[in-house]
Amino acid sequence: MASKIDKVFYDIGRLEILAEQNSPIHRLDPRAKLLVTIFFVLAVVSYGKYAIADLLPFFLYPAIIIGLANLPVGYLLKKLLIVSPFVLFIGIFNPFIDREIMVQFGPLAISGGWVSFASLLLRFSLTVGAALLLIAITSFPAVCGALDKMGAPRILTVQLLMLYRYLFVLVEEGIRMIRAHALRSFSRRRPRYRIYLQLLGNLLLRTIDRAQRIHLAMLSRAFSGEIKTVRQFNFGRSELLFLLLATGALITLRTTHLTDLLGRLLLEISQ
């Protein structure tokens, strides 16, 4: 039980270490990467609900980024798998609701529901994968910094940063409490729910205490209500090139039917 939490927790650290690498992709200004990711997600979700073939070429983007940034594919796939139950639950009813036959492969008839379900899965892997990639090539704080620079409300970005910073402290505190419970609960495997409630309440109180101490630390350093940062961002020629190339490619993909073209090309060659 506790060891599972430990493991998930240290996994976040791994994502952070990945973001500290020094590849041409990592060196790009976070804003450029954020913009490209947003465009990518928009392009992917803009397709109709039965789109499958048109979505496939979009896997080129993660493939290229993973290659250039030297990221471990297996690790990222595992992360995707962890989130996948959510989308599975959302999409699983499609095949039951939408039973109209759409594709016929000989004796095998595939209903519209299955097609839209598959499309949903593809879109999930592309969009969530892109977000995950963004963190792995930029780091979470840098993404927040980019959001801030691009005009997102300061209060939002600061909240996100604080959340991220204290996530680690909070989880560690939680782990210590669960460990302390596990060591004294002997044969009982899982804490009873009432005890869970107490643990949570305790955690909340500790959090409030800590928030007070953090506020005190901020006040002692002349805090006056606004968090200021110096962040040197450099949107230079390579960022522009990256942005143009990526958006160009995305627009091309979105406006042409690449899979269709390739298929027809193959057929023509074989004839």
């Binding site: 979470f140 704080p141 927040c144 940063l161 604080m162 991220y164 910073r165 204290y166 800590r210 101490r213 953090i214 005190l216 630390a217 901020m218 350093r221 002349a222 805090f223 968090i227 200021k228 940062t229 110096v230």
Partner: peptide
């Protein structure tokens, strides 16, 4: 409690800023 920013640099720069 004292290091609440996301990098060491930002933390040390917090007061002067």
């Amino acid at each position: 409690d004292q290091l609440f920013m996301s990098t060491v640099f930002d933390d040390v720069a917090f007061g002067p800023l």
